[in-house]
Computed example of a mutant assay.
Amino acid sequence: MTRTVEATMRVPATLAGTRLDQAAAELFSDYSRERLKTWINQGELTVDGERAKPKAKLVGEETLTLCATLEDEQRFTPQDIPLTVVFEDEHLLIVNKPAGMVVHPAPGNPDGTLLNALLHHHPALAEIPRAGIVHRLDKDTSGLLMVAKTLPTQAALVEQLQARTVSRQYDAVVIGTPVAGATVDAPIGRHPKDRKRQAVTAGGKPAVTHYRVVERFRTHTHVRCKLETGRTHQIRVHMAHARYPLIGDQLYGGRPKLPPGAADTLKEILREFPRQALHARRLGFIHPHSGQQMMFRAPLPDDLIMLLDYLREDHETMR
């Protein structure tokens, strides 16, 4: 189901000399910059009735006309799937996604997703693109996600992500023993030969990941990663690039590394760990309406606690 968005705004003199996409973001603030830019490129947002490029400079007093199509999420079925809601008010909600849950329906995962669960939890999200989902986590990554309940909130949170003012911190358990923390500053783009993978590539988008050591074991390390950017598979790609791939990462991790002389139980856990050992533990941002600094934390899930317990026991036993 789709609906038409129509609006007209006159460019005030105060925005003279401003780029079209920047002025549109000010005048149509219910929508994100990326969505407005798409509408400009598609000719759905015009200047005095004419198409223009997003970077076109305005002189003031032009008329911006928006006539665009928004697709409601009613094409997806609400499903009564349990959600762990960490916070909710009339503007947004924060959920703690379990490992194994896909965020958005796609070929191969038509339902049973976070989006289906959100539509059941709050049916009005059918009127918000992507049911208000602002950012994503991989299917097998657990942890915190923010969801907007209104268009203005969604636009504001997307703006914060683009401005890199959203704080996102992850726990990961990696193969190898880094001496200390570091920063991986390496562009990420589609792998040139494998379309399912991302890779560090010269033509990729800027990507920065900071990591520090939390606890070191014999052949593995618990690290804490902080994102500056949010590229697809960023932590998984960057840690593999640094030669510390995540335990259980079938796409980037390579073969498991087994500590010499380790107990059979630990060896089996490391061989069979069913997902990348990655958890979105902390999420911070400014509430778009109250202006309050918000900070949320999600405790480690049971499978990562178990993994760390066995690695710790092995480390202490073999010292």
Rank of each mutant, 00 (worst) to 15 (best):
E88Q: 04
L118H: 02
F87S: 06
T46Y: 00
F87L: 06
G49H: 03
T65N: 11
L45H: 01
P82G: 09
A68W: 05
L92Q: 02
F87V: 01
G43S: 07
P107M: 07
E71I: 15
L83N: 04
P105R: 01
L118G: 04
L70I: 08
Q79D: 03
A68R: 00
K57I: 15
I81G: 03
K53E: 08
F76M: 07
P54M: 10
R75A: 13
Q74R: 15
T69W: 11
C67W: 04
L118T: 04
F87K: 06
L70Q: 02
E90T: 12
P105L: 02
A56V: 14
H120K: 07
L92F: 04
H121D: 12
V85Y: 04
P105H: 00
L114I: 00
P54S: 13
N116A: 09
L64R: 00
Q42P: 12
T65V: 11
L66G: 10
L92K: 05
L83M: 06
T65Y: 08
F76I: 10
D48L: 08
I81E: 05
P82V: 06
V86S: 01
V85K: 04
H91F: 10
K55W: 12
P82F: 11
A56Q: 11
F76W: 08
G43D: 03
A52D: 04
D89M: 09
E73F: 05
R75H: 15
F87A: 05
C67E: 10
K97N: 03
A52W: 06
E50P: 12
H104L: 07
T65D: 13
R51M: 14
V86K: 06
L45C: 10
V103R: 04
D72G: 15
P54F: 09
V85H: 02
A106F: 02
E90W: 07
D72I: 10
L83A: 01
M101A: 02
C67G: 14
L66D: 06
K57H: 00
C67I: 13
D89F: 08
C67A: 13
D72E: 13
G100Y: 09
P105M: 00
E44N: 09
H120E: 09
E90F: 08
N109F: 10
F76R: 02
G100K: 13
G112N: 08
M101H: 03
E88W: 04
T65F: 08
Q79H: 08
A52Q: 06
E73I: 10
W39Y: 02
P54I: 11
F87I: 02
P54C: 14
W39F: 06
I81H: 01
C67P: 05
E88F: 05
K53P: 07
L66P: 03
A56G: 11
T63Y: 09
L118R: 01
K55S: 15
L119K: 03
E71Q: 15
E50Y: 13
H121E: 10
A117S: 04
